[in-house]
């Protein structure tokens, strides 16, 4: 059984044409090697990825949902921070 003693891992996959690893889900495994194997078996069955990261869930420091007003609302009124006032040249590619 996946007892409470089996650590939880977060899984990140970089897709075939993706530029960055994206969070896809989590799983239980006893160590990093087994977590990587399980991630391959669970999250790449349909050719989703070319690279996998696994990170212990306990290593993640998360923001407090109760503080979202303080954390995120101040940015909402500052539309001048969005780069929408000029054209990005084609040659620049992905930003």
């Amino acid at each position: 059984m996946a007892t409470p003693n089996t650590p939880l891992w977060e899984v990140f996959i970089r897709s075939r044409n993706g530029l960055a690893h994206k969070h896809v889900g989590s799983l239980h495994a006893n160590d990093a090697t087994m977590a990587l194997q399980a991630a391959r078996d669970i999250y790449t069955r349909r050719g989703e990825g070319l690279s996998i990261w696994v990170v212990p869930s306990s290593a993640i420091t998360a923001s407090d949902p109760a503080e979202k007003g303080m954390m995120f609302e101040p940015a909402e009124s500052k539309i001048y921070r969005h780069p929408t006032f000029y054209e990005v040249p084609e040659e620049v590619g992905h930003m």
Binding site: A2, H28, A29, D41, I42, R45
Partner: peptide, 12 residues
């Protein structure tokens, strides 16, 4: 299987 992760692995 003993855990969901292995259920998938063995089926694969």
């Amino acid at each position: 299987a003993p855990m969901l992760e292995e259920d998938m692995a063995l089926s694969n």
